[in-house]
C-alpha cells in the first residue's frame, strides 16, 4: 500500500506493508536514523517523533495509520525557531551525554515549548516522564527546558 505524509517538510511517498511501524519506515525507507529503536514497547521514548504536532512513539505506531499527516523529527528544517533554541540550550547545559535518547526527548520538549507552556521544574519532569535517560540524571535536561521555555516567548 502507498502512504503519503510530510516528513520534515518534504513529501514522503512510501510503499509499505500493513505491519510496518513508523519507526521502521522512517529508518529503513527514509533513512531518518535520528529516530531510535530503544525498547519496542513505547516505553523508553527514544523513537518519539511529532505527528501533527503531537509526540508519538513511532515504534508502536503503524506507518499506515499516519497517512496524510505532518511528521517532524529533530532534523526538521527550522528557521531559527523552537528546535534551534532547544538544541542550543541542550548543548549549553550538556542535556545530552551519550545522546541516544536525545532526539526523541527533544521532540517532546519541542511540543511543550512551542505551545508556549511555562512549567515548573516538577511539571517539566512529569511532562517528560515518558522518556528515559540513563546518563544525565535529568537535572541538566530540566535546566535546558526551563531556560528554553523562558526564552521562547521573546523569540516567537
Amino acid at each position: 500500500m502507498q502512504v503519503e505524509f510530510q516528513f520534515n517538510d518534504e513529501r514522503a511517498i512510501c510503499d509499505i506493508a500493513g505491519h510496518e511501524t513508523l519507526l521502521a519506515v522512517l529508518r529503513d525507507k527514509l533513512g531518518a536514523m535520528e529516530v531510535k529503536y530503544g525498547c519496542g514497547e513505547g516505553a523508553c521514548g527514544s523513537c518519539v517523533v511529532l505527528v501533527d504536532g503531537n509526540p508519538l512513539a513511532s515504534c508502536i505506531t503503524l506507518c499506515a495509520s499516519v497517512d496524510g499527516t505532518d511528521i517532524m523529527s529533530v532534523k526538521a528544517p527550522d528557521p531559527p525557531g523552537a528546535w534551534a533554541l532547544l538544541k542550543d540550550r541542550f548543548a549549553a547545559h550538556e542535556g545530552a551525554q551519550c545522546g541516544f535518547c536525545t532526539p526523541g526527548l527533544l521532540a517532546s520538549c519541542f511540543a511543550l515549548v512551542q505551545r508556549g507552556e511555562k512549567l515548573t521544574r516538577q511539571e517539566i519532569r512529569e511532562a517528560l516522564s515518558g522518556h528515559l535517560c540513563r546518563c544525565t540524571g535529568y537535572h541538566h535536561i530540566v535546566d535546558a527546558v526551563e531556560e528554553a521555555m523562558a526564552i521562547w516567548p521573546t523569540m516567537s
Binding site: G18, T21, E41, G42, I60, S65
Partner: peptide, 26 residues
C-alpha cells in the same frame, strides 16, 4: 481492531501476538 495501539503494537513487536490484519478505527 486497532484503537490507540498502545497495547496491541507492543505485543506485535515482541511477537507475543500474531495476527492477519488490523482494522484501524481512526
Amino acid at each position: 481492531f486497532l484503537a490507540g495501539g498502545q497495547s496491541l503494537v507492543p505485543l506485535l513487536n515482541l511477537h507475543v501476538a500474531e495476527i492477519k490484519g488490523v482494522v484501524d478505527l481512526q
